[in-house]
Design a protein around this nucleic acid. Structure first.
Lengths: 194, 194
DNA sequence: GCAATGAGTGAGTAGTTACTCATTTAAACT
DNA sequence: AGTTTAAATGAGTAACTACTCACTCATTGC
């Protein structure tokens, strides 16, 4: 029973890490700085995470899970596929605008090569629920001209840029308006002028 | 006249740097490794670039310029704006598929915060020609419901994911087909079902 | 052939980093 | 209160990094 380690400190460490990673990058952020911000000593970090890499991995899986939850929640099997896809995109964007730091961390992760083996394996943007939705759409004749890669690229990546701009206060419209524009333009893009 | 430094070695160093940066990341790549790959000694690198940061900056501006050229070349003032935008996207994608490493470096740069001040200032994805095109499109009633941020996000970011997938051999369709799908789905996405 | 210039070298340096471990502190149980 | 258990500490360490500089080597002009 070595689980006397407080969940509170674990959370604090992870939060401090996301904050710093998202603004400075993994490599530019010393573990010392993380433990400082979390209000614990340098050594304590390594009682909660065996290595810095393990900390990064934990963060990644945690964020991945949160995103997967957002995707799952947005799926309403009884409604038309296109509405579902739109809705998932909307949910995801909401989550991202509410969690910009986690999103930036995630993007950084997606674009930085060779950070950790484990998390690279989880496939940085593979969510089974969305895949099923895509398959369903294809089998119903929608999205026919579009293969999975292009679909996923259009679905995920623009979001990152929007969060970037939002974080640095470079968004003209307000968040809701931006989300709606992004959802609409993606769907219509995928539809391939039926 | 300190410019007896050979342009050849400069090129070699920059090429080695892109190669390594794009597969390992900036921070994970020691200058030693770069000079090794370029076939020069550790000290020589610092005769060509005062600091590692200056090397990164040089790379960034060089790639930025190449991309700007691709954009400029694709613009044909006499043709309709929508064709021009499509064409620019096509050109950009072509360039990216031909220069995947430079593209990955660029993406990494875009998503890593606080790397260099200078290059951050260049605005990582600001190309005047494309901005003008966007303005023109708006003033002609096309693209009316879409603000610049969403437009740029849809224009640039999905490309990065496609290059990623392509680099790791995860693209189903061939390159040409993928490019066409991407161009078509973006435009149609922007058009907002006229 | 000689001297001068400056490009190229790579062992060395100062600084930083992830991680350790002997010790302290605090809580839990008897 | 006293003893046991484990969490927290932070100075210390080994490894690594960007960058330097005293020197060698190659080229050029005379």
């Amino acid at each position: 029973m070595s689980r006397h380690l407080s969940e509170k400190k674990r959370k604090a460490l992870m939060e401090a890490a996301v904050d710093l990673f998202s603004t400075q990058g993994f490599h530019a952020t010393p573990t010392q700085q993380i433990s400082d911000r979390a209000g614990v000593s340098a050594g304590t970090l390594f009682r909660y995470f065996r290595t810095k890499e393990e900390l990064i991995d934990s963060l990644h899986t945690s964020i991945h899970r949160a995103l997967a939850d957002a995707v799952d929640e947005a799926i309403r099997p009884e409604t038309p596929v296109e509405d579902q896809i739109k809705n998932v995109k909307r949910q995801v964007l909401h989550w991202m605008f509410e969690n910009p730091k986690k999103t930036l961390f995630f993007e950084q992760f997606a674009s930085s090569p060779n950070i950790t083996k484990k998390a690279q394996k989880e496939g940085f943007i593979r969510f089974s629920a969305l895949d099923e939705l895509y398959q369903k759409a294809v089998s119903r004749g929608i999205l026919k001209g579009i293969n999975r890669e292009v679909f996923l690229a259009n679905f995920w990546y623009p979001n990152f840029m929007l969060i970037h701009l939002h974080t640095f206060g470079k968004l003209q419209s307000d968040v809701e308006e931006t989300i709606e524009q992004s959802v609409a333009s993606m769907w219509c893009g995928m539809e391939q002028r039926q």
